[in-house]
Amino acid sequence: MKEARVILREGSDEKEFLSAVSSEAQRITILVKTDDKISAIERLRNFLLSNVSKTIVVYASNPGERDEV
């Protein structure tokens, strides 16, 4: 299964995110760097609501932590 991983930071360009979600990958792991974890969901809500076909996994971590999931 094709996978894509993307990191979303505060104020980051959405191009990388849009590229990952529109790719052929059937599983997308998104790491959102944020001080408030639930705000990650609020930021992604429209995308999550519109997605029906891909497996999506969302992690959130503080901006100072390592970029790993």
């Binding site: 299964m1 990650a40 969901i41 891909k54 497996t55 999506i56 996994v57 969302v58 992690y59 999931v69």
Partner: peptide
């Protein structure tokens, strides 16, 4: 270990 906030299991899985 760290848990994901959200998981949507697509039809492919």
């Amino acid at each position: 270990e760290d848990l994901p906030l959200y998981v949507y299991v697509g039809p492919g899985e």
